[in-house]
Amino acid sequence: MGERGLLLTFGADAEDRAAREAVRAADAALGAAAPGWLLEAVPSYVALLIVFDPLATDHEGVAAFIDAMAPAGGRAPAPKEWEIPFCPANGYAPDLSEVAARTGLAEEEVIATFCAATFEVAMLGFAPGYAYLAGLPEALRLPRKSAPVPSVARGSVIVAGAQALVMTLDLPAGWWRIGRSPMKLLLPEAEGVSPLSPGDAVRFRAIPAAEMPS
């Protein structure tokens, strides 16, 4: 990818859990080996981008290093578990009634189904701290809206396709808003920007509006 990048692909389907695990294993192995030419590695659903210093190596050198590394096998660090509180009350969930209508569920069933699911952080990307959460239950899957909403408030819990995401910034989004979380998922001064890492498990817990910061 350009003169300083190599994109390793482990599959073609975002739903392919084994491919996601292979990406994380390669990322972990590369991070542990920490070759001097490594500028950064960027994991995603089925691909790992390796950005290297072209003064120190080249595409063939990186590919040879990866081939030599593979048999040893990388093991991703043990995933962490997170519980993200969110409020699905009026005012925080402008699309909840429409999600209920489109899925044929009652609003309470939408929230109960959502809170019963365990999500996996598939990747962070697009914008700072955006964590794509794989594992939205079948019953809640809807295509994204035909046009994005120009500004969706940070903290909004949004769903589309097989995914969920907690907005970290006020940005446009075409997914369905079913609540708002008070949890800080963008840590400006922390090491690493976000507390979440690919592979982590996430569950949501509904809280009443009284527990939301004013």
Binding site: V46, L49, V51
Partner: peptide
């Protein structure tokens, strides 16, 4: 599936239109 992007990437949308990504690029698409 959404995958990493770099500055300079020449991205083609569904209509075949070309965009070259710059300094504040989104990191995946």
């Amino acid at each position: 599936p959404s995958e990493p992007l770099v500055r300079g990437a020449v991205q083609v949308n569904g209509e075949g239109r070309v965009t070259v990504l710059a300094a504040d690029h989104q990191t995946a698409a």
